[in-house]
Structures are given as C-alpha cells and as structure tokens.
Design a protein around this nucleic acid. Structure first.
Length: 880
RNA sequence: GACUCCGUAGCUCAGCUGGGAGAGCGCUACCUUGACAGGGUAGAGGUCGUUGGUUCGAGCCCAAUCGGAGUCACCA
C-alpha cells in the first residue's frame, strides 16, 4: 500500500472508508482450517431481521470482535460466524402491519404468498444489517453466514423436534397457556411481562341453591364468571363447612355449580371463597382437574366473548367486563368495587393483556433436560459464566423450570412436523409427510423462534451431520456474548439442547453484559424516543470511537449509560494517537522494516519506554483474555497518552533534532517498534485507525488484523533505568511546580543546582543531564554531591537528591517558608505513618516480606526528605 | 415474599484474589514550545451511604441498616 502524508487532523470518515472491504477482500476473517493452528470460535447472537441494529447490538458485537481479533492475532484459527434470526412473532407483525397499510390482510394473500412477502422483507433487512456490521468493523466470516430458517437449520429443527417427540420429551396437550389475543398466538411463560396495573377488585355474593344464604367471592376479572364451574373454599374453613357439597346458582348464567373444598384456597385472603374458572386461569385449571370440573371457555381467540357468554357474545372482553359489572350491580349481586393494584401479564411483543386460555398446544417436558443441564455445572465441562454471579441466575431458573409451550399460531417460522389423521386423529411426527397424505392434515402452527435459536451454536456448524468439518473443528464454541436480559430465553435453552444433542456445553465462556441506557439512565426505547442510532455515532465520531467507548465504558455485567461527551473524548484519544503517529512517521525518514535495530546502545528514555511497553503488553493481554476490556483499554490509554506522548516523544526529540546519526537511527527504531506494538494491541479495540496508521509504518505485513500479537520481551526489562527515569521525571515535575509558584514561565532559562546524595547518583544524573537541561530549561546546570546551597533559591526534594533554583528577586520568603512548612508537615506525616506501621508487631510479623521491605525503604526515603526540608527551612530562617 | 446489582471527586464511572483512593468530562491559573489549542503545564475537589464485626491492615470480606435499580415468584 502506498505511503501517504497523514493530515494533521484525524478524519474518521476518511480512515474508515473502504477499509472494511479491504479486510473482506483479503479474506482475513475466514479461518484457514489450518491444522497447525488451534481453533477458536464464536457464533454471533443472530439479530432479528425486523429492523436496524441498535446500540445494544453494537456493544454486544464489538466485544465479540475484540476477542476474535485478539485471538486471530495470537495465532488461533478464528471463526466468528454471522447470521440472523427469523424472529417469528416480531417479523410477522411488522410485515402484517406493512400490508395493512395497503389494506391487505394476510388471509387475502394466503399462507404461501404471505410467507413470500416476509422473505422479501427479510432480504431487504439482512442487507441493512450487513451494512451496519461493516460500519462497525466486525471481523465476521461471511462465507459461513446462516439464517434460522435456511435449509440446514430447518433440518436441525425438525431433527430435534422428532427426537424429543420420540423420547417423549415433546408432547401435545390441553392446558391453560398465555394467549396473546392481538397476535392470536400462544406465548411461553417468559414472553409474558408482568406490569403493575391499577385495577379493581369486584366483590360479589353468589346465591346458594335452595337457601337464602349467599357466599361472598371477589375477583379482578368479573367477565370470567361466565365460565365459572365451581366455588372453592378451604376444607378447614369453619365458616363454610356447612356449604361444602352444596350448589351455587351462577348469576346471569343460571348454571348450578358445586362448592368444593381445596387446600389451594387461602382462608386469610378476601372472604376465603374463590370462584373457579378452569378455562381461564391456570390455578383454577388445576383445581378443576382435582375436582373433575367442567371447563367452559367464554372467549374467542381474538379476545371477544363467544357463544358461551350468552347475551355478551361478540363483545370485547373489556367491554364485556363493563357491561357485566353494570348488570351484576343492578341485580345486587355485585356490592362493592375496590381499587386494587395488581400484576397483569402483557405480551412481550404486542403489549396486549395476556389472556390465560385453555388451548391445545405442543410442549417440551423440561424436567429431564433441565436436570442434565444443572448437572453439567458440577462437571469440568461446565459453562463458565462471566461475571460468575449470573450462574446463580441461570441455575435458579433451571431448577424451577416449567414446561415450555413451543407452538405458535403464526405462519412465519418452522412449521411443526406433525400430521393428524383425518379420521382416527392419530398423530404422525416426521420430516416427510405420511405416504397417504390425502388422509392427513399437517399442524398449522410453527415453533417458537427460540426453539431454533436454541440450536444455533451447533446447527450453524452443520449438525445433525456430526461428520461435518465445521462441527468437528469449531464446536463447542469458545465464547458467547449476550445481555443478561436473554439468559432465560436463549443462553439456558442453548445449554440444555446442546447437552441433550451433543453431550457438550455449547460454549466454554458466556460473557454477560448489561443494557445500554440513555444519559439519564433510562432504558432506550422506541416509545420514549431516546434511542441513539449507532450509525449516527459512527458518522459523527467514527466506529473506533464508538467501539472504544462501548468497551471501556463499563465493567462486565453492568449497564452502560450513553454519553455523547464520552464518545467525543474517545475521539480525542484517537486524534492523539493519530498525531503521535504522524510525528513518528515524519521523523522516521525512509526507515524500512529491516532497518529497525534495537541492538545498538539504548538511551534512558528508550529503556524506560520499552519496559513500560512490556508491562502494558502483559496487562492488556491478561485483561482482554478475562474480558476486562475497560482495564485493558485504560492501560493502553495511559501508556499511549502519558508515557508515550507526554514523555517519550518529548525526550526523543533531543535525539531526533540532534546531530548523532546513530542515536537518531536508534530512536527511530524505538519509535517504530513501540508504535507498531502499541497499534497491534489497540487493534482489537480500534481496528480502523490502527490499520490505517500501521499501513504507513515500516513493516511488511499485509494487514494488522493478521499481524502477530505482541509478547513480552524479557531483554527489555530495565528495572534500574526505570528508577533513574522516575527520578528525573520527579525532578522535572518539581521544577515545573516551583516555576508555576514563582511565575517563571518555562520558556525562561534559569540556573539549577542538584545536590546528589551519593556519588553514584551524581554520576547517573550527570550522564542524563541533557534531559534535565532541556525539560527544566536551564542556563547553567550544576550536579554535585557537595553543593553550597544558594541563599536565594527555591528548593525541592526528590528521591536521592535535592534541587535548587536560584531565583533572586522572585522569591517571596514568607510564601516560600509557608510552602516548605507545608511540605515538612507532609513528610512528617508520612514518616509517622510508616513508623507506626513498622512498629506494629502484627504487621511486621504477618504482612508479606516484600511489603515490609518496601515500607522500610520508604521510611529511609521519607526521613531523608524530611531532613532536607527541615535543613532548608533552618537555612532560610537564618538568612532572615 | 425470595434473590441480584448499585451507592467512591460537581457529573459519569474504574478500582483485578484486602497492603496508603484513580480516569474522563467539568472547574481554577498559566502556556500561540517545530505531532496534536479537539493540545500542554500546574492545581483545587473524596468521613469510599450508615453502623457494627473479622483482620497487623477494609472502598474491597461478614452482619445489620438506609436509599436506588432489577430479576423471579405471587392470593382469587
């Protein structure tokens, strides 16, 4: 790639343009299937084809990309498999809405044509999603992209359904399910969201047959009384002993129903008597079974009253409620209406109030599957949850699991592979239709979307063909990344299906993250209109800035607030990297990869920055491995901004602007090396800018995305030099401090004297005097072990030395004395603190040796500093 | 009702297996130093919600308590 001059301002749009295509064309993201390499795999949580990606997707996928990119650079054969989810209810609903706008209902089209329409929609949005993935820079292998409704996955779904059916783990039955009257489909328990609603509590008196007595009951849903088939009381309730076995005449309806005794009834609550509606309440259904009660369904599938509702037939359930309340009040049956706050279930997708509804559906018998999944966690094949607390969440759910209703009354999805014999009612389950198809009718329903998502980690790899190369090589996957809101929906189900069908956990690690919130901490939602489009962020600040913000903005498992200011400051970081690189490139002349030579004599700052680089490599690698992206990102930030830019580059200028050609060449080598290594570490976090700069560096790789990950170079650990460097840095800071104090700008040259505490220290400082001269901007610099401290001077202490700045005429003695007094106080406190620690027998005896030794060293240093400051004060006072 | 998370600088958040509190933004003063003024230098600002306990040592562990958020399960 041709070298070009970098503009002085980081232009994220220019940097990111066309870069993704370069990666895809280079097939860097397609694994090599190289047997020499260890495989590493992740499957993407397939986004719904209902629409555009939001910030949550950006967050989730960026984490996966960061891990994938690092592993790829570390030499793993990385497969990150992309794909999308058909999202049954959600997608069907949006397409239906779109058709409705054209005054077309799905029934007008018929099943086949309607499904064709949905496929068209899917193709359109799949392209949008791929464009968004590209903008985010995700290193996905598109040659393996899958869709939950493609042939292979559909085959896996049928296979699983049939196997479970044959094992008796899938059954068809009549139960109370959660019915969504708006979308007219059944829902599983977790698709129901309970929300607090200000409702009413209606108190009624049902007349006892052949008696003047009444029995008091209460309900929140009076319209269901039309389906009452009993009244229940507690068997031990003395108030009602005489009524058990008697009959009640159901008002309006006139049906005679039994008064039954059942333990379920709470004597303390309400009147202690409960109306029983087996067809419209799950608890009542159970009681109905125990007492052999009739089940009377009083509603249609769309939530209007049916023929069993008599004169209320055709009314919507809520209109019926109003009407029935009025009628019962008039009849004197209903005698009190109380305000009542209670939880009401709503459909997760349509928002409609869920109707408990008697219906025949397909279910998965969960207990055996859940047991196996729970047992897995006690073996070494367990799934490692990050953070670990989510394992508790997961296990708690698994241990209290209820059967899973998997049939959905939709057209968009995997049609249930079951046929019913037209005459005998016999059920046939299989991939192919029965031979005498004319005598059979296939089940109209489709499976819950999550039924296919649950198979995703292995169905995408070619299962049920267990000899498929991808399945053998890349399953089980290494990591799964998702939000805590879908642990039950997806993570749990993938685990038990995987255990059942592959005898393995589907992934080794599962990284759980939180939710993205707006700046005020509110959930981002369409209704609030507070959502932020990731593409808008990318347009304004670039994908790298967005990614870095997302990765470093929170800690695993925690929610993340979106702040534009933080994205902006991340852009500033990118701009800093840009300009530091620009400086380096401008000063590298025509340095080539083979010219980089770190074997020549290194200067102090070279040794220091190389040591710091080693520390950074260790820290970033370890923390990225642990999914601690925030920690790793901060280490990179500090290294780049503080160490590399603020100190190393500034010191390197001495060499670069100097005369010594060999020294210059070494500095160039260090600059090139450190920048190269730093960009590599930063690449998984900010792929675009790192690639752009790296292409300009003296190196011979094709792409940084496949360059090797930095490793610690033991020969670059210069402990003694780091200490020296730190002394000089402390000195420079002190001088800057003093100059700020006496208002002497750094641009003015001043004289400076350094009193070293030993000949060795003096010699060391002497060797590095150029840095002191430059950064303290000295006229005359004297370094000695025996300095005659100037009378009129500002002073400071550092470890191993004292410094004096003779600033005649500028010194305010009172202020200086006050400043020194303050400093003396500081060291006095420090000394006292360390002394107290060291005189604590418990500490000396029990604390780690190293720590105690460190404290002893500190004590010597602090005492020395204290003495120096004290002496200086004495001198000043003597002068006055 | 059970459980989980959060409470640290004005704001948003870090703080890894307990060993002298950090960042970004904001604020103050100064600086047109040849990569960057979206920059640099120096600085102000914290009883780490509260109370006990364990420990030589607690922001971190334990208990209780207050405040905020959430998950699950719920009585008609």
């Amino acid at each position: 790639m041709a070298k070009k001059e970098l503009p002085s301002k980081y232009d994220h749009l220019a940097v990111e343009k066309d870069r993704y295509q370069f990666w895809v064309d280079g097939t860097f993201f397609t694994p090599e299937d190289n047997p020499e390499k260890e495989p590493f795999s992740i499957v993407i949580p397939p986004p719904n084809v209902t629409g555009r990606l939001h910030l949550g997707h950006a967050w989730d996928t960026t984490m996966q990309d960061t891990v994938s990119r690092m592993k790829r650079m570390q030499g793993y054969d990385v497969l990150w498999l992309p794909g999308m989810d058909h999202a049954g209810i959600a997608t069907q609903a949006v397409v239906e809405r779109k058709l409705r706008e054209q005054n077309i209902s799905k029934y007008d089209l018929g099943r086949e044509k309607f499904v064709d329409e949905v496929w068209k929609w899917k193709d359109e949005y799949a392209n949008t999603i791929r464009d968004q993935w590209a903008k985010l820079g995700l290193s996905l292998d598109y040659t393996r992209e899958r869709f939950t409704l493609d042939d292979g996955l559909s085959n896996a779904v049928q296979e699983v359904f049939i196997k479970l059916y044959e094992k008796g783990l899938i059954y068809r039955g009549e139960y109370i399910i959660n019915w969504d009257p708006k979308t007219k489909t059944a829902l599983s328990d977790i698709e129901v969201i309970y929300e607090e609603v200000n409702g009413k509590f209606y108190h009624m008196r049902y007349p006892i047959k052949d008696s003047d007595e009444t029995i008091e009951i209460a309900t929140t849903r009076p319209e269901t009384m039309l389906g009452d088939t009993a009244v229940a009381v507690h068997p031990k309730d003395e108030r009602y002993q005489h009524l058990i076995g008697k009959k009640v005449v159901l008002p309006i309806v006139g049906r005679e129903i039994d008064i039954v005794a059942d333990d379920y009834v709470d004597m303390e609550f309400g009147s202690g008597a409960v109306k029983i509606t087996p067809a419209h309440d799950p608890n009542d259904f159970e009681i109905g079974n125990r007492h052999n009660l009739e089940r009377v369904l009083v509603m249609h599938e769309n939530g209007t009253m049916n023929e069993n509702a008599g004169k209320y037939e055709g009314l919507d359930r809520f209109d019926c409620r109003k009407q029935i309340v009025a009628d019962l009040q008039e009849a004197g049956i209903l005698f009190e209406i109380e305000d009542h706050v209670h939880q009401v279930g709503h459909s997760e997708r349509s928002g409609a109030v869920v109707e408990p509804y008697l219906s025949t559906q397909w279910f998965v018998n969960m207990q055996p599957l859940a047991d196996a999944a729970v047992e897995l966690q006690e073996t070494d094949k367990k799934v490692n949850f990050v953070p670990s607390r989510f394992e508790g969440t997961y296990l708690h759910w698994m241990e209290n699991i209820r059967d899973w209703c998997i049939s959905r009354q939709l057209w968009w999805g995997h049609r249930i592979p079951a046929w019913y014999h037209n005459e005998t009612g016999e059920i046939y389950v299989g991939k192919e239709a029965p031979a005498d198809i004319e005598n059979w009718t296939q089940d109209e329903d489709v499976l819950d979307t999550w039924f296919s998502s649950a198979l995703w980690p292995f169905s995408t790899m070619g299962w049920p063909d267990v000899d498929e190369a991808d399945f053998k090589r890349y399953f089980p996957t290494d990591a799964l990344v998702t939000g805590y809101d879908i642990i039950f929906f997806w993570v749990a189900r993938m685990i038990f299906q995987s255990v059942e069908f592959t005898d393995e956990a589907p992934f080794k690690d599962v990284l759980i993250h939180g939710l993205i919130r707006d700046a005020e901490g509110r959930k981002m939602s369409k209704s609030l209109g507070n959502g932020v489009d990731p593409m808008e962020v990318i347009e304004k600040y670039g994908a790298d800035a967005l990614r870095y913000f997302l990765l470093t903005g929170s800690t695993p498992g925690q929610d993340l607030r979106f702040h534009w200011e933080r994205v902006e400051s991340t852009w500033n970081f990118a701009n800093k990297i840009w300009n530091a690189s620009r400086f380096a490139l401008m000063n590298m002349e025509d340095l080539k990869a083979e010219d980089i030579d770190l074997t020549k004599e290194l200067a102090l700052p070279d040794k220091w920055i190389l040591t710091r680089l080693n520390e950074t490599i260790e820290h970033v690698t370890a923390n990225t491995d642990k999914y601690e992206f925030g920690e790793a990102g901060r280490a990179l930030y500090n290294f780049i901004w503080d160490d590399f830019c603020d100190w190393y580059i500034e010191m390197a200028k001495l060499s670069l602007y100097g005369e010594d050609e060999e020294r210059k060449q070494t500095t160039r080598s260090v600059l090139a090396h450190v920048l190269d290594q730093t960009l590599r570490m930063l690449h998984p976090y900010m792929p675009f800018i790192t690639e752009e700069i790296w292409q300009q560096l003296p190196q011979e790789g094709e792409s940084i995305s496949v360059a090797s990950w930095p490793i610690v170079n033991e020969s670059f650990n210069f402990t003694a030099e780091v200490k020296q460097m730190e002394t000089i840095m402390a000195m420079i800071r002190s001088v800057r401090n003093i100059r700020a104090e006496v208002d002497t700008p750094m641009s003015r040259k001043v004289n400076m004297l350094i009193q070293a505490h030993s000949a060795e220290i003096a010699e060391e400082l002497q060797k590095e005097r150029q840095y002191i001269e430059r950064f303290c901007n000295t006229e005359e610099l004297t370094i000695d072990t025996n300095i005659d401290a100037p009378k009129q001077a500002m002073s400071a202490v550092v470890t191993g030395a004292e410094i004096f700045l003779p600033l005649e005429g500028l010194i305010d003695f009172e202020k200086e004395l006050a400043r020194l007094a303050k400093e003396l106080e500081k060291w006095e406190k420090e000394v006292a603190l360390v002394e107290r620690k060291l005189s604590n027998e418990g500490f000396v005896a029990k604390a780690p040796e190293q720590l105690v030794e460190k404290e002893r060293e500190k004590l010597i240093d602090y005492k020395e500093k204290y003495a120096s400051v004290q002496a200086r004060i004495a001198e000043l006072e003597a002068q006055q």
